[in-house]
Design a protein around this nucleic acid. Structure first.
Lengths: 352, 352
DNA sequence: GATATGTCGGCACACGTGTGCTTATGTCAA
DNA sequence: TTGACATAAGCACACGTGTGCCGACATATC
């Protein structure tokens, strides 16, 4: 008595199964088996061990567990930016699915910088993730690709030719084609397009959809009306400003990236133009606030939940079947985005 | 010749320093020292080892590194929701600071659910994070608190009386007092307040600021004009709707949470009221899009960067000084938010 | 040429957990 | 009573990395 709670632990040194074992006068292997509900253990012993673990404040050491290499406990998600609504939603959705599958998700943010990307992926591999869902930079390092080939991976949204892994993408061509067709059907003939570089698969496909819609209608795209810039708000602002200053003014603008949409909205607002009176606007993405704008923004809504579902499913399957030595043909799952028509698009005003 | 690249590795079994060692006919300890630039190694050997490591595709095993317990490599961030602009910004900023300090940040999302919170924190402890920055649930489990006490921690934004660790918060009282004073100075006398429960420190403080401003002006708060609800968009929508339906209608509404602001904006929009003509509006937070609204929203802007700075600084200091056995008095660092006046607040219309 | 000094690399162990093998104990059937 | 067998718990090793200690060897100094 009077010895208190047994002087449990020096700070910084946590309780181990050995501590529990010596506390209970048995071998640490017995404790291990008890805690993991293995066979060949009397239920009485299990009980005692679990109680002792609880009492001593035992917390398992993940590193020690993982060192043997057998268990697959972690997966990684690589994205350019958490502040972007789309990616933060993906993070949340994927994390949920991982949790349900008994996995923990590690988040890696690249800032769309190839070097950071390589470092982050290396860090994920050092943590021995069993697989990765990745939205890569436009121009990944060769090191990045080499590293990625070592583990199961699923490309999300952006698709790289050099990478042989599965891909879960949006049907960008169809999505943008529908958006452009919407504008054409409203009578617009001078439609500007502001999107991202063709070096990214999404940039390529979205522009293609835009042009395809014109082709089907037999309409010539607005001369000088296509601006391709990196996906950052400032560039969106600048690009929209340039497009608005064209000699032959656009009566509608279509934006092919959520970041560019934010900058673009600011440019349109500063130009003091009426929407959709002076110019119709189609944005990209579907953050909660698009419909709070005045006018509410017509936009290509991204199927976040379906993307996360498919990516998780693909990844888990690959992990389960042991990295698929079987060269599954690089599956590309395309999910169709939804054009949500709100108030920012209207019929062409026949002014002249 | 013709033996190819030496049949490097069976899938799923990665290259270890032992592999490098046997490849080079030396002891694994030599390899370890070479890779870590330790002393007692000739630079020639270092060179050879590093080249071999590169060639064989060696990736260090973090688990093996961490198992010895000496190194502090990880920290955790616990937040209720990544989709919230504020927390996604905090995630980004803190991750950057950790990276600069040579640490990796693990993200844990609680969904504001105490049970999930406890599980996530346990997972962080299993990963042996050296410290944690946490925005806890309103009512954390006792298990959560017990776990948190085992490691250095910094409370972010929300402050819990039961927890003795340092806290980095906003000066919520001052922030909301300034916002309310702004409205009072514009002549408003019927001001509604929609915020979060008083069980959260932020909810408490913000309401206090609101009331304090009234007191200083000698104005009686609007009867029935205070609504306290959980921080979710739906509740914000409902609460604002209720407030708008009061017998004595408010001429201004102040919202004390970013989530509630989103729901509230939707309610005001649906009510078809002119802002600030019929009702002035002050929101909370500062996502990129507040100034894209029509009218642009006056809001209490949160000092994200300063908060992240201070939290990181606090945490790193605690970690460095070995968990501070020295009972540092629970430091509370308060950072003043900024009232950003835009277009959604205007003078009271003297109608009656 | 012998000893002191310094450099380089190997041996062996530690970290916390899981597991195959072995031993000890008890139970039941022949 | 003995042997077959199930159950419980311990011993020893493995995982990948880092490090204290010691031996091997080269160079410098007397």
């Amino acid at each position: 008595m009077a010895d208190g709670p047994m002087q449990i632990r020096k700070l910084g040194h946590s309780v181990t199964i050995k501590d529990i074992a010596s506390h209970l006068n048995m071998a640490h292997s017995t404790v291990s088996r008890a805690l993991n509900d293995r066979s060949h253990i009397s239920s009485a012993t299990k009980q005692r061990v679990k109680e002792a673990a609880e009492k001593l404040g035992y917390v398992a050491n993940l590193s020690a567990r993982m060192i043997r290499g057998d268990a697959g406990l972690l997966v990684g998600l690589i994205i350019p930016d958490v502040q972007n609504d789309f990616y933060s939603s993906i993070s949340k959705e994927l994390a949920d699915r991982c949790r349900k599958a008994g996995l923990r998700m590690l988040l890696a943010i690249t800032d769309d910088d190839p070097e950071t990307e390589q470092n982050e992926i290396r860090a994920l591999l050092e943590a021995r993730v069993s697989g990765v869902v990745a939205t890569l930079t436009a121009t990944p390092t060769s090191g990045t690709l080499t590293l990625l080939e070592q583990i199961p991976s699923v490309q999300l949204v952006r698709r790289h030719a050099k990478l042989k892994s599965a891909a879960v993408c949006m049907a960008d061509v169809a999505g943008c084609q529908a958006a452009a067709e919407h504008l054409l059907a409203l009578g617009h003939r001078n439609i500007a397009y502001v999107g991202t570089s063709k070096t990214i698969s999404t940039g390529r496909d979205r522009l293609r959809g835009f042009l395809e819609a014109h082709k089907l209608r037999g309409v010539e795209p607005l001369a000088g009306g296509v601006e391709l810039v990196p996906p950052r708000q400032e560039y969106g602002y600048d690009a929209i400003a340039r497009v608005l200053a064209l000699k032959e003014k656009p009566t509608a603008i279509m934006i092919g990236s959520s970041e560019l949409t934010i900058g673009g909205l600011r440019a349109v607002r500063e130009a003091g133009l009426a929407v959709p009176g002076d110019v119709s606007l189609v944005g990209y993405g579907d953050p909660v606030w698009f419909d709070l704008l005045t006018p509410a923004l017509t936009a290509v809504a991204l199927p976040v939940s379906a993307l996360a579902d498919s990516a998780a499913q693909q990844l888990f399957r690959q992990i389960d079947q042991g990295q698929g030595d079987v060269p599954v043909k690089p599956l590309v799952h395309k999910i169709t985005p939804n054009l949500v028509v709100r108030e920012s698009t209207g019929p062409r005003k026949r002014r002249k």
